[in-house]
């Protein structure tokens, strides 16, 4: 826990700095009341609320990322024991990574990395 006391102090300080910026803004601004306006649309008015169902075309990559990302769970602890465990650690990890890379190649061949 001792480690995180300065961390929390820093987070609080950061928030205080942000708060101070807003406070100074209130003090020196020429108009305190914020302007409420439709979003900027190149001079047009919105036909509908922008926060609708946003159809991303890269959803396949998100799945690929999630699977590969799991690997990081092992990667960091692995990094600190390689010297101790020896050759087998490197062989095992890179076999593992090779399997995952094969998955990436498959997704690429299936066109999963394009989206238009």
């Amino acid at each position: 826990m001792g480690w995180y006391v300065p961390v929390m102090a820093l987070a609080a300080l950061g928030l205080a700095l942000v708060g101070a910026t807003y406070a100074i803004g209130l003090l020196v601004t020429v108009q305190r009341r914020p302007l409420v306006t439709p979003p900027f649309l190149a001079g047009g008015l919105p036909r509908e609320h922008a926060v609708s169902r946003f159809h991303v075309r890269w959803y396949v990559v998100t799945l690929l990322f999630l699977a590969f990302d799991m690997e990081m769970v092992f990667m960091y602890p692995w990094a600190v024991v390689v010297a101790e465990v020896g050759v087998e650690a490197v062989v095992e990890m890179f076999t593992f990574l090779a399997v995952l890379l094969a998955g990436v190649v498959y997704v690429w061949r299936e066109g999963g990395l394009r989206w238009t």
């Binding site: 799945l63 998955g103 299936e110």
Partner: peptide
Amino acid sequence: VMMVVGVGLFATMVAATLLAT
């Protein structure tokens, strides 16, 4: 365990891509 997870993740990638594209 780790090796099984690796194969599982590979299967996830392939299956997800097959289903989603």
